[in-house]
């Protein structure tokens, strides 16, 4: 691949890095990343992925921009209120980097469409805010052998990790089944510090880029836990669970499961 003059300038700070170089930048430009969720985590993550020159960025979100999103979902502006989040996100990416092909999915991810959506992507980023979707994404990535970059936020606390196909634990090794309905307020209602998803979403972009480049140590096998209030990062070792219902020795989950809405406040 020959870079244009504009690309040489745009990606100069990547090309200079020994771990990236022109070859690494080419990998990024020919890579395809799927971002599921265009909200708090998706905004910073997608922004950095776009700026980095990810060749194809798929963005899935059925929702529209609400004024209450703007405190943290930084790629939507006041004028975007009422628009589909994926449209607003696409415009933001286009402003930053015309090299990126943005593919938008204005639909909720579900058992019927998820395999078809993720099949063409190299890396999947879970930037969602609810348990049923997380299980769906984890299971689909396991079945289709896709690397998954996980992130979650709640109030002042954030978590991130990486699940790699057939290497280390999956989300169900950590949480085998969803918590009972009513115990899990969604972020929409729970309150969250606006900066928090910025930190976690940026970490997710960082890990997605490392997976594509094949450099460094990803968070695979480690759960990074961030406490924004005391400003502490801690780490928990994650091991593959032999009794995991999905990736264990005697699995019981063989197809995608749609758990109902667990959010107490919506019911």
């Amino acid at each position: 691949m020959n870079f244009s003059e504009e690309q040489i300038k745009r990606y100069a700070r990547h090309i200079i890095l020994p771990e990236v170089g022109g070859e690494g930048q080419e990998k990024l430009l020919s890579s395809k990343v799927l971002l599921i969720g265009a909200g708090g985590l998706g905004a910073p993550c997608g922004y950095y992925l776009g700026a980095a020159g990810i060749g194809t960025l798929g963005i899935v979100d059925y929702d529209t921009v609400d004024l209450s999103n703007l405190q943290r979902q930084i790629w939507h502006g006041t004028a975007d209120v009422g628009r589909y989040k994926v449209d607003s996100a696409r415009d933001s990416i286009a402003r930053i980097n015309p090299d990126v092909k943005v593919v938008t999915y204005k639909e909720g991810i579900n058992a019927a469409n998820i395999k078809d959506i993720i099949k063409d992507y190299d890396v999947v980023v879970d930037a969602t805010d609810n348990f049923p979707t997380r299980y769906l994404i984890n299971d689909a990535c396991h079945f289709m052998k896709k690397p998954l970059v996980y992130g979650s936020i709640f109030r002042f606390d954030g978590q991130a990790t990486v699940f790699l196909p057939e290497e280390g634990p999956c989300y169900r090794c950590l949480f085998p089944t969803p918590p009972p309905a009513g115990l899990v307020p969604s972020c929409q209602e729970a309150g969250v510090l606006g900066v928090l998803p910025g930190v976690i979403g940026a970490i997710q972009a960082n890990e997605a880029i490392k997976i594509i480049l094949g450099v460094g140590q990803t968070l695979n096998g480690r759960l990074l836990i961030y406490d924004a209030l005391d400003m502490k990062f801690t780490e928990m070792k994650l091991r593959q669970d032999k009794t995991c219902p999905l990736c264990g020795e005697n699995p019981t989950v063989f197809e995608l499961i749609e758990y109902g809405d667990l959010c107490e406040f919506k019911n």
């Binding site: 870079f3 040489i8 300038k9 100069a12 700070r13 090309i15 200079i16 022109g22 070859e23």
Partner: peptide, 13 residues
């Protein structure tokens, strides 16, 4: 600089 090095590096690659 830094484009002198960036272009040199791309040529070396």
């Amino acid at each position: 600089c830094p484009f002198t090095f960036v272009k040199s590096k791309l040529a070396l690659e």
